[in-house]
Design a protein around this nucleic acid. Structure first.
Lengths: 225, 225
DNA sequence: CAAGCCGGTAACTAAACAGTTACTTGATGG
DNA sequence: CCATCAAGTAACTGTTTAGTTACCGGCTTG
C-alpha cells in the first residue's frame, strides 16, 4: 500500500502526449487515489482534508476521484475500512495460541505496538473517526465480523493460561486487548504534546525501546498470578 | 470559569465604574467566547471548527471574537492553554505524597480517570493538537513549567515506595504517569470506534466502573514488588 | 472504419469560509 | 448637552472549497 515506485513528484502533473496511453490504468489510478486519501485524511482529519490535495497527491484529478468513490465521505469510509482490514489481517497471521499463554500475550502486545509504530496513519484515522463519534464507521456493515476473531482467539489463550494457573481468574479478553492498545496508542498518537510538555523526545529509539518493554511488562504483570 | 447565573442584575447596589447594562459586559462576552470555542474546537477539531459557529454559540458575533482574541489560531491556542491549566491545577490539589506510596499512586490514577471522564473536551483538544503535531502548543511558552511539578511529586512518591520496599526499583515516574494517562485516554477517546467494532457500549456505568478498577489494578500491578 | 465507451483533463459554479469595514448604541466626562 | 469612546451589530469581500460539466482522444468491437 505504500511504495508504488512511479514518478511520485507532486509538482509535475504535466505529461508528454505520447506517454499518456501508458497512464490509462484504472486500477492503478484507483489505488493511487486511495493511498493519497489515506495520507491526506491521516494528516489533516476529515474537516481539514482537501479533495483537490488528494487528487494532486494521487497524480490525477477530482473527476476520477468522484468517479471511483462517489464523494468525499464515501472515500473517507473506504480509507477507514481498509485501515481496519490491514491490522486485523496482519493480526490473524500471528496465531497467538501456538505458544504458551504467556508468550502468546507478549507476542500480541509486541505485534500491536510495532504495527502502531509502523502505521501512524492508522492511529490518526482512528483519532479522526472518534472525534466524529464513529459517524462513518457505524455505517460500515462489513467490519463487524472482522473483530470477533481477535477477541475469540485472545479469550482462548487466557482460558488456557487460567487452567495452567499462570493467569488470574479475573483476566478479561477485552480488557487485556484494551490495555495493550491503550499503551501503544496513547504513547504514539500523543507523542507531540507529550514531548512538548515533558521536554523529552519520545520518538527517540532509546525511549521507543523502553516503552516497548514497558508495554509487555505491564500487560503481563496485570494478568499474572 | 464563571459565575454566570445572572445576566447582570447589578443596578441595586452602589454604582461603581464597572456598572453596565446587560448588553455591555466585556468580561462575560470574553468568557462566553472562550467557552463556546472550547466546545466548537473539541467537537470539530481545528479544521472543522467554524468561527461563525463559535460566535453564535457565544451569543455574540465575529467582530467581538476577533477583537478579543486576534484570530482563529490564537483563540484555539488560548482554549488549549486553559484546558491544560485546568487539569494541572486540579492535580496539584491532590497532594499524592500525603498518603502511603501505594495509596498515592492509586489516588492519582483515580483522579486522572475521573478528570478525563468529566472533561471529554480536554481529551478531544489533545487529539486535535496531536493531529497537528503540537503545532500550536509548541508556540506556547507559559506551559512548560506547569508540568514539571507533576513529575516531581510523582517521583518523590515512587522513591518513598522503593525505600519502603513496596515498589520495584525500575519504576519510572514518566512511565507511571503515561501508563495511567494511556489507560484513561484510550478508553474514553476511542469509545466510539471501540463500542462499534466490539459491539459493547463502553460508556455504560457498569463498564465504566470496571475500567476504573482495572486502571488502578494495572498501574499498581506494574510497579509493585 | 465509425460509433461509442472509457480513462482522463480542465475550467467552471454555488456555497462556505475567515477576516474586515462601516455603522449603531449608550455611558461618561468636560 | 455634546464630544468621545468602547461594546456591539450586520453586511460585505476575496478566497477556498466540494462537487459538476463540457470536452478530449485512444481503444474496442460490430
Amino acid at each position: 500500500m505504500n511504495d508504488s515506485g512511479e514518478n511520485g513528484e507532486k509538482k509535475r502533473s504535466r505529461r508528454p502526449v505520447a506517454e499518456r496511453t501508458a497512464h490509462r490504468d484504472p486500477e492503478r489510478t484507483r489505488a493511487a487515489i486511495l493511498e493519497a486519501a489515506t495520507r491526506e485524511f491521516a494528516e489533516n482529519g476529515m474537516g481539514g482534508a482537501r479533495v483537490d490535495a488528494i487528487a494532486e497527491r494521487a497524480g490525477t484529478n477530482k473527476r476520477m476521484l468522484y468517479h471511483y468513490f462517489g464523494d468525499k465521505e464515501q472515500l473517507y469510509l473506504k480509507v477507514l475500512e481498509e485501515a481496519y482490514v490491514g491490522i486485523r489481517t496482519a493480526e490473524r497471521a500471528l496465531h497467538i495460541g501456538d505458544r504458551s499463554p504467556e508468550e502468546g500475550i507478549g507476542e500480541l502486545a509486541l505485534f500491536t505496538w510495532r504495527y502502531f509504530l509502523q502505521h501512524p496513519e492508522f492511529l490518526s484515522l482512528l483519532g479522526t473517526e472518534n472525534l466524529h463519534r464513529a459517524r462513518w464507521l457505524r455505517q460500515s456493515v462489513r467490519l463487524k465480523e472482522l473483530h470477533s476473531h481477535l477477541i475469540g482467539e485472545l479469550s482462548d489463550v487466557l482460558e488456557q493460561g487460567k487452567k495452567q494457573g499462570v493467569f488470574i481468574q479475573t483476566a478479561d479478553p477485552l480488557h487485556v486487548y484494551l490495555t495493550i492498545a491503550s499503551l501503544g496508542y496513547f504513547y504514539l498518537s500523543n507523542q507531540y504534546t507529550l514531548s512538548t510538555i515533558f521536554g523529552r523526545d519520545l520518538i527517540e529509539p532509546t525511549h521507543l525501546n523502553a516503552w516497548e518493554r514497558h508495554i509487555v511488562h505491564v500487560t503481563l504483570a496485570s494478568i499474572k498470578r
